[in-house]
Amino acid sequence: MTTPVQDAGAAVRKLGVSPDTYGPSLDTPTDPAATEVVGAALAELLAQQALDQVAVWHGADDAVLAHVVARQLGATVTRASELEGVVGFHPPVAAGTRIALVGTAWEPARLRTLLNLAATARAEVVAVAAVLATPALAEVTGPPTAALLTELPGGPR
């Protein structure tokens, strides 16, 4: 019998990871069932956190992943985007909202920007999670962090 992390590893391998506007992301259109497996495993990592929203960069693939995670946790989704140098959440995040930042793999600048955006909105970041561990995730201080995998199973796709 396989574990949720092993199932997620196989699903991530099936989906593959590609560059996107806001950093690496899963190729979620490749296999919706595999996307569900990864999202459910990521939600399991966040299940101990009481949260209201899942925040994600506005890339289509990570948005799909965030919706799976949010559905599993009974939360809503907010997306961060940058337009002409202005970064914001849509829908806006209210002060006091408990959010988890979710992504495929965090790049340092993008993660810092999201943490700062949440602080500006006076939201409480209760966790930072990723499908793939990166040094940026390891540098987070304050909220707990979690990653499903330390590397892409089987190497690059």
Rank of each mutant, 00 (worst) to 15 (best):
D52G: 14
L137E: 01
W106R: 01
V125K: 05
L148K: 04
V93K: 05
V128S: 01
V12F: 06
T134A: 08
L114A: 06
V37M: 01
G155E: 04
I99S: 09
H58Q: 15
V93G: 03
Q72V: 07
T2R: 14
D20W: 05
D20C: 06
P153Q: 08
K14G: 14
L152C: 11
L111P: 01
V69T: 05
T145S: 09
G85E: 05
A118C: 06
P153E: 04
D20F: 05
T28P: 00
E44T: 08
V69H: 03
R157D: 11
G154Y: 06
R79M: 10
G103W: 00
D7P: 03
A60H: 02
S25P: 07
R71E: 13
L73Y: 09
P32S: 03
Y22F: 08
L137P: 03
A105Y: 00
V131R: 02
T76N: 08
V87H: 13
A47E: 10
R110K: 12
R110G: 13
V140K: 03
E36V: 11
Y22C: 01
V125F: 01
E139L: 13
W106E: 04
H67V: 06
V17T: 06
G59P: 01
G103K: 09
P144A: 11
Q49H: 15
G23C: 04
A146L: 00
Y22N: 09
L115C: 08
A80Q: 00
P24H: 10
A66F: 04
P135E: 02
V38A: 01
P156F: 08
V126R: 10
G9L: 04
M1H: 15
R79C: 12
V64C: 04
A47T: 13
W57V: 08
A66T: 03
T104L: 07
T76Y: 09
A127N: 11
P19T: 08
A118T: 05
A33G: 11
V77G: 07
G23V: 00
P19F: 11
V140L: 07
V87T: 15
L65T: 00
F89E: 02
W57P: 05
T134K: 10
L114M: 13
E84V: 12
A34C: 03
T97Q: 15
A136I: 02
P32W: 00
V37K: 02
D31R: 09
G9A: 12
T3I: 10
A40G: 10
A80D: 00
G155R: 08
E139I: 06
R71V: 08
P29C: 12
D27F: 14
E36S: 13
Q49W: 11
V140A: 05
T150G: 14
L117Q: 11
A94F: 14
R13F: 06
D52T: 07
S25D: 11
A41V: 07
A63R: 12
A109P: 10
L65N: 02
Q48I: 13
T97N: 13
T145C: 06
G88W: 00
R122L: 12
A55Q: 00
A95W: 14
A47S: 15
V87P: 10
A119W: 09
W57K: 07
D20K: 02
V126F: 06
D52H: 10
V17R: 02
F89Y: 12
A127W: 09
M1E: 14
P29W: 08
D61N: 06
V56A: 13
A121S: 04
R110V: 05
V69C: 05
L42V: 13
R71N: 12
S81H: 15
P4W: 09
D61A: 11
R79G: 09
P144Y: 11
D52L: 01
V131N: 03
E82T: 15
